[in-house]
Amino acid sequence: MHDIELRVNGHAERASVPAGMTLLEFLRDRLALTGAKEGCGIGECGACTVLLDRTPVTACLVLAVEADGLDVRTIEGEAADGELSALQRAFVDAGAVQCGFCTPGMIMSARALLLRSPHPSDEEIVEAIAGNLCRCTGYEAILAAIRAASGTGGEP
């Protein structure tokens, strides 16, 4: 077991985890943050995307112990004080959500994009979310939502 300390959505967390536990398992099973989903377990679908020190990663391919000392942000940290972020609002308004299973990961990829590039080009948007598979929407409304959220600031 390894003792780790990290920040998750701004809260300090301390835990003892086995080396083989993924960050995704840690978030879901230990912290009950079930917004990040396992869609494949091998980093191919992006449903488990979270931010690790502001960059998006697939939490299924990160060990919890690797996140020791780092800052983790999940979909649960996106709405501040119960208010949807402009990005979340844009997803609702653009009809970018159908079954919703890919949505948390999709929004985290988009969040990371807006953090590094507040006014992204279409090409940047596509590159940023191409690792997030969605089977329902055909992506068009998702791209529109991210475009609409462009310029709404890095921080929610």
Binding site: G43, T49, V57, T58, S109, A130
Partner: peptide, 9 residues
């Protein structure tokens, strides 16, 4: 290579 997320690792 791969996706934006994977290229961060």
């Amino acid at each position: 290579i791969a996706t934006y997320q994977l290229r961060n690792r």
